[in-house]
Nucleic acid binder design. Structure first.
Ligand SMILES: [Zn+2]
Ligand SMILES: [Zn+2]
Ligand SMILES: [Zn+2]
Ligand SMILES: [Zn+2]
Lengths: 133, 133
DNA sequence: ATAATTATGTTATAATATAACGCTATACTC
DNA sequence: GAGTATAGCGTTATATTATAACATAATTAT
């Protein structure tokens, strides 16, 4: 009984599918223009679906890019514990799925002893294919 | 001969001072409206100064808030290696200055063995004063 | 069946950020 | 110091990202 998966609504499905089709993160207005043929007409419809998909861990927001990417680690159960590596030169983003890093960060306590509910970590560098070119 | 500190320009000084006066992060357009009496009239003047101040490590951008905060660790020499804790309920942000965390992250290699140039880490939780109220 | 919750569709607008252009100050180099 | 490269300024306009507000419809819970 781990996953009580509430089914996605129509708009949520359309938008999730579009995001999953793309390897790179996509922007909200680019999503909008690409799903207009499916009957989604206005920004609020996109942003509402995005909010929900983020909440349930199907996608994540890449804060430094204002872009959105599908979760690669099979629907993060702790959706607000995310780590990415981002290529400065081609903007490619990949989600880091490293239990050790994950644990290190979730266990991290600041100097006042506070533990955190979640985190977002974005690493920057040059990806392999950009490195060699 | 560590610090070859180029002096700040007039606008950079005005905007840095304003950011430093504020304990909490400030937004670009709030900066603008608060420094208009000093002769700064338009967004590009603010954003140009912000870009430069970020580049030289005097301030940082809090990506999840689109806000800007003065560096608390005496002008981060690696300005793109930043960590913050953010209170979900009052939006207070504090810069984490923990050499161990710092080293852990700068030494971190992903599964392909790539090391990164920099990172931005934002922890989320509830600050002490919000916890007790 | 009723009530509560969640999602939708729409219009308008708010908030964040940059392009482009001409000009000025400052730093570098010969 | 004249010439030139670089960084900064001021301005107008515009692009990009995100939300407010409101009326309606669908879904879920009691
Ligand atoms: Zn994920
Ligand atoms: Zn790349
Ligand atoms: Zn700092
Ligand atoms: Zn707080």
């Amino acid at each position: 009984m781990e996953n009580k998966q509430k089914p996605l609504s129509k708009n949520q499905k359309i938008i999730l599918e579009y995001i999953q089709k793309n390897k790179k993160p996509v922007k909200a207005y680019s999503i909008l223009s690409n799903v207009q043929k499916k009957g989604i007409n206005a920004p609020p419809q996109v942003y509402r679906a995005l909010d929900k998909l983020i909440e349930i861990g199907k996608i994540h927001k890449v804060e430094s890019q204002n872009s959105f990417v599908a979760c690669k680690t099979s629907d993060c159960e702790t959706p607000h514990a995310t780590a990415f590596s981002i290529c400065d030169s081609c903007d490619e983003v990949s989600e880091i799925n490293d239990p050790k890093l994950f644990k290190y960060l979730l266990d991290y306590k600041d100097n006042s002893g506070i533990k955190f509910d979640g985190y977002n970590l974005e690493f920057f560098g040059t990806c392999k294919s950009c490195e060699t070119s």
